[in-house]
Design a protein around this nucleic acid. Structure first.
Lengths: 115, 115
DNA sequence: TTGACATATATAGGCTGACTATATATCATA
DNA sequence: TATGATATATAGTCAGCCTATATATGTCAA
């Protein structure tokens, strides 16, 4: 079953920043890592990722620097800033709240805590 | 903390259909029910809901019928069709897959099962 | 009586986020 | 030499939810 793409909306920035929490990465690497970490669920496209990274850079959540690779084009590494860490933390909390609310609704009305 | 609206994208159709699984509802009722069921997390707006319902009707996922209320405007009730039930089931599965993948990424790399 | 508010549905227009398509450039391999 | 993997980038498009606004009825307070 193909994943409904409309479900993916909005959380890519969160997921990308989460990858950057561990270590600096370049774009192409993130695409591969995202695929692996999500157990082949998220196929983040280059055309989605690079504009997203530029947006995060504008907001001051990441900083970029060029680095030569052993072969091929030089790589543009991204580093999560202090502000980025703070934003990531908030987005993680927001995700928790959101996912919990979806679970509540999907669990249906026959449960405790019904308002 | 205000919920990041961009996270909500895409899953409203799923949640609305889930409400309709239990019983027929009219639009205004869904807005209230959604708020209660989600523990005051989802504030679905009328301007989002009604076009969404019309879309579900066009796809044959719901059927509508008018019914007079004790007072005020007649209410437009929505009923989940057989096709709607099937679509709901698929969307629920898609949500499970998506949420699991997000959890995997958020859990980070220092875990078992890393691909 | 009139103004505000809750109930109830509807549409127009805008913003954001992810997509496809395309462009560029290097290197390996067939 | 041409195909594919690596690597980054932008333009244009589409979908989803938003705000703002319109309509209509009933209740309650000033």
């Amino acid at each position: 079953m193909e994943l409904d793409k409309s479900l993916v909306s909005g959380s890519m920035a969160l997921l990308v920043m989460k990858l950057l929490e561990e270590k600096d990465l370049y774009g192409y690497e993130m695409i591969e890592l995202m695929k692996n970490r999500s157990d082949d669920t998220f196929h983040l496209k280059a055309g989605s990722l690079y504009p997203l990274l530029h947006g995060l850079e504008e907001k001051g959540y990441v900083e970029a620097y060029e680095q030569e690779a052993a072969a091929g084009k030089p790589r543009r590494y991204y580093h999560l800033t202090k502000r980025g860490h703070a934003a990531l933390s908030e987005k993680e909390q927001a995700w928790e709240i959101y996912a919990r609310a979806v679970r509540r609704v999907l669990r249906g009305g026959v449960c405790l805590g019904e308002a």
